[in-house]
Design a protein around this nucleic acid. Structure first.
Length: 212
DNA sequence: ACCCAGGTGGCCC
DNA sequence: GGGCCACATGGG
């Protein structure tokens, strides 16, 4: 909580989740795999201009056609396969209605479903659960792993890392959303692999902190 | 000419 | 559980 408050004071509210529909959260999460958000956003804009930010529209295209549009995001062959595959599943099994799916499915069941989709692993599933389905889960991404490492909190696997956050934070979706976004902001600016913690705004809190 | 970006899946031990 | 690799564009 101490780290959270400090980051919030430094960077302010990030508000990642505003103005995004569930399907857009999912598409964005996949397109940004191992890719800067800037490049993912270009691809999203291409899809939007082509009217493809809905499952039925995307499901009707071949992966090759989608790949051309999302080229700026890199890894585009895999990502195009994921997007069309997921869209087809949504259309065929859920009437293309992802809104209903994320509001009416229990968290564990929904997570298992997300993980069964191509290109969706633990981090993407949890981002969708948190930002599209309003569930109190904590995604562990690259920056979160680095922060944990700096705090000396290693091991336990993905689930173990999540438990660290859940056990120390209030059960509050808004706080999880904000904190995850803040950790990314911190990572982007100060926690790259090389420069490490030079001038990190966490200052004295970071190296010695044992509590969030 | 590197290094890096809001991972995942496949395969190995 | 953990390690290694391929995937691929655009910015610093």
């Amino acid at each position: 909580m101490e780290v959270y408050q400090r980051l919030l004071a430094i960077f302010g509210p990030q508000r990642w989740w505003l103005k995004e529909k569930p399907f857009e959260v999912l598409v964005g999460a996949i397109l940004t795999h191992r890719t800067s958000w800037r490049n993912a956003a270009r691809s999203i804009e291409n899809l939007r201009r082509a009217g493809l930010m809905e499952p039925p529209a995307l499901a009707s295209l071949s992966a090759d056609d989608v790949a051309i549009l999302i080229r700026p995001a890199g890894l585009f062959v895999q990502k195009a396969m994921s997007l069309t595959g997921i869209s087809r599943s949504l259309v065929e099994q859920y009437d293309g209605n992802i809104e209903k799916l994320v509001t009416s499915t229990p968290t564990d069941e929904l997570r298992a479903l997300l993980l069964s989709w191509p290109g969706v692993g633990p981090e993407t599933a949890d981002v969708v659960l948190l930002y599209a389905a309003n569930r109190p889960v904590f995604p562990i991404d690259l920056y979160t792993e680095r922060l944990l490492k700096r705090l000396g909190l290693e091991g336990g696997g993905y689930g173990g890392r999540q438990r660290i956050f859940l056990s120390q934070l209030p059960n509050d979706v808004q706080i999880y959303r904000e904190f995850h976004a803040l950790i990314d902001e911190l990572g982007k600016r100060f926690c790259r692999t090389k420069p490490l913690c030079n001038r990190c705004p966490l200052g004295d809190v970071c190296p010695s902190a044992t509590q969030f």
